[in-house]
Structures are given as C-alpha cells and as structure tokens.
Design a protein around this nucleic acid. Sequence first.
DNA 1: TATTGTTATACTCTATAACTATA
DNA 2: TATAGTTATAGAGTATAACAATA
Lengths: 155, 155
Amino acid sequence: MNVLHDTSKASATLDRLLELVVLLGEDMTQSLAREGLTTSRAHVLWVLHHEGPATQRVLADALRVTPRNITGLVDGLVATGFVTRERHPTDRRATLVSLTERAAASMGQMHSSHRELAELLFGDMPARRFSAFATGLDHVTDRMREGLRAAQAGR
Amino acid sequence: MNVLHDTSKASATLDRLLELVVLLGEDMTQSLAREGLTTSRAHVLWVLHHEGPATQRVLADALRVTPRNITGLVDGLVATGFVTRERHPTDRRATLVSLTERAAASMGQMHSSHRELAELLFGDMPARRFSAFATGLDHVTDRMREGLRAAQAGR
DNA sequence: TATTGTTATACTCTATAACTATA
DNA sequence: TATAGTTATAGAGTATAACAATA
C-alpha cells in the first residue's frame, strides 16, 4: 500500500514534469522564431558561439547528425545571414563556418531571454524552496542521464 | 550584489532544467521509435485513447494542427496498423478514426514505460526531498503557464 | 586509401490554397 | 453557404548512398 501510494505520486509528478517540458519547448520555439531561427539552426549557432569557427565535420559530430544534414542547416543559415562559409586555411577539402554580426546580436538577445525566463520561473521563489527544488532537479537529472546511458549501452 | 547572486543561480538552474528537457525528449523519442511511432503520431493515439473514436476535424483541433496534417498522420498510422478509418454513421463527409488492438497494446507499453521512468527518477528520493521538488515544480510550471499566456496575449 | 562536403533520393512534419463531396 | 477531408505545392529536418576533390 505504501509502495502503491508512492508510485502514483511519482507518476503524477512525472506528468507535471512532462507538461513543463512541453511548455518550455513551446516558449523556446516561439522565441527562436521571433529571431528567424529554428531549434536545429540555433543549435548550430550555439556550437559556433562556444567553439568558435568550425568545419562542417565538427558541427556534424557536435550535433550528432549526418554531414548532409549540416550542409542543409548551414545553407539556411547562410541564406538568412547568420553565418558565412570560408575556405579552410590549410585543408582545401574543408570549409570554415563562422558567425556573422547578426548572429552575435541574436545570441545576445537569446542570453537576455534566458535571464528573463530564469527570473520569471524562480524570481519570486523563497530561497529555501528554490534550493530544495535545485537539489531535487540535480537528483532527477542524474538519474535520467544514467538511465539514458544504460539504454544506449543495452542496444 | 544579493540580486546578482540570485540571478546567476537562477540562470544555472534554468540551464539544468533545459538539459533535463533535452534528456527527457531523447528518452521519449527513443521509446516511441521502439514502438514504431513518432511523437506526432503518438499524440494522435493519445487523443484517441482519451476521447475514443474521433473525426479528423476533432483531431486537428486537439493537436492544433491543420486538417491536411492530420490526413498525413492518419495515413501513416493506418499504414503501420495503429488506427482504422471508418465511415461516420451520420455525416457522410466525415471519417471516424479508431484505435486498433496493436495501438491498445502500444498504449499499455507506454504506460509501463511511464511508470518505470517515474520509478527511475523518483524511486530512491527521500520522501521529504521528493515533496520539496514537487512543490517547486508546481511553482515553476505555474509561472511558465502564466508567461506563455502573457506572451500569447501580447502578440 | 581515408576524409570533406556535395548531389541524388526519400521519409516525416508542417503550412496554405484550391477543390470535391456532403450538410 | 459552410464544413470534412482531399489533392497540389512548398519548406524544414532527417537519413542513406554514391561521388568529387583533396589529404
């Protein structure tokens, strides 16, 4: 009886977590659309922002996606002015993809949105509740990582 | 100084929350793929499971997607044996979409996966920490709902 | 011989617009 | 005249396979 009770509470909490996943996803999609981006294209910008100019091969590995797919994403980002393709200085097979000024501006905008969202979600939370939530979140994220790793190993 | 400190902690916590979003999304995509489903098609099954047999119009409204899109999703689900199209008893323009046995089996499987995931994420959590997390999650979800509603109103 | 990125082909999800059959 | 669902067309993300240029 004790176990059953816990199980149903855990299930209900997972439901709410999944609802939050959906809401966060919608919010992110909308914010990116306002900047003229999709999640996949933003992911490319994110990698370039952190790694600096990169070859398409590097991007393909970072996004865990086929090189062909990167060709398409970079095509789109070039067409909309977020990145440029340049010759690689030493390897003539490769191209270097770099962020433009427009992309830098968008990244700044995204940072602001991120801070605003953090403020919206946690800004009025009592400090004690906030840190309890953060602790639980760490726990849950760790379990999820382990679970995925196990699933990937067993396949 | 106090404010700045809080802001950076809030940002870091949002980062971890977004990481969890990504992990949960991957897990869900993989589970569904194992059943031969995509998230969109599973969403259709979910609605049919809760509402019973429905017209494509009803499905389009439920998923907030165009009728044309539903045609494609139902085509795929029919081809893979998850649903059937039948004549509507009274309105000859409409079709009724119903779950098959295979879909019922998959829904059962998904329920099991859901319970297992809840157990993985929360099963070894001390009761007090679990309920603190659940409380924080409620808070965060409420703020997110409000934020999205405001964003939609202001557009 | 191996690697980088492309063309060719195909599938899924999504949208708008025009059209058919029915209400 | 309005509604249900289709065909036609298009764009984005994804994949595999074959191929060119270069290492």
